[in-house]
Amino acid sequence: MNNTIVVTGTDTGIGKTVFAAGLTGLLDGVYWKPVQSGIEDETDSLIVARLSGLPAERIIPEAWRLTEPLSPHRAAELDGVEIDADALALPATKRPLVVEGAGGLMVPVNRQTLFINVFARWQAPVVLCARTGLGTINHTLLSIEALRGRNIPLLGVAFIGDEIADTQRTIAEMGEVRVLGRLPRLDPLTPETLSAAMHASFDVADFGEPGR
């Protein structure tokens, strides 16, 4: 089992935070969102705390909390600060650490650095979250190529949404990537339904050594 897993996505708004909450619970781990953009509504850390069923001390405070729900580089500028990307270091924990990025891989941390550059420095294995709907083949294969081009270890793809078997198969075969499972849309979305879905759809053992 890897001590740290980075959860990123092919895009924003695909359910990555819900998956991260489920994964943190599945691994009985610790969650960290390094940069939070937008604090007026429920933050990602609060969502994970609500859905993971884990105690509050398992949610590590964000390194940066930015007011506006924008790309971190722009949200920071509006707040009159600049994020020091080089200072973003993985916290030391005894439990598995689930780290959630912001949006997709090419989201700017500041005007010089993208999140994918931070991930490359960390060299922690990545789980790539992808929707199952139209457009996901392009977005997912591009994301896989970007990760591999920077030699970032990729554990596999976690699909989120309704099953679309051919799309999922196409990504697995053309991307030469392991499919870790698929998290369906849950209604209602509660700690209990999320935990049940994660245990039914994912195998803890798959969150070990990176795949192909």
Rank of each mutant, 00 (worst) to 15 (best):
L26N: 09
V179P: 06
T10V: 12
L54P: 01
V118S: 11
I83H: 01
I83C: 04
R178A: 06
L66G: 03
I5D: 01
V118N: 04
A196V: 02
E82C: 15
L54H: 02
A120Y: 03
P61L: 05
A85Y: 02
L180D: 05
G156D: 00
W64E: 15
N2Y: 11
F119L: 14
G22P: 02
M1W: 10
D84L: 03
P34S: 09
P210A: 04
L66P: 13
A21S: 10
G80A: 07
T12C: 08
D84C: 06
G25I: 00
D84W: 00
A172S: 08
I5H: 03
G161C: 10
V48K: 07
L147A: 14
E100M: 05
N110L: 06
N151Q: 15
D162S: 14
D41C: 04
V48T: 12
F115R: 01
R169Y: 01
N2T: 15
D86Y: 03
R95K: 12
L128D: 01
I59T: 06
I116P: 09
L23E: 02
G208I: 05
E77H: 11
A172R: 13
P188C: 09
S71M: 05
Q112T: 13
T140P: 12
R185H: 14
L147E: 08
R150Y: 03
L194G: 02
G133R: 08
A87M: 05
I14F: 08
D203R: 15
Q168K: 07
R111E: 15
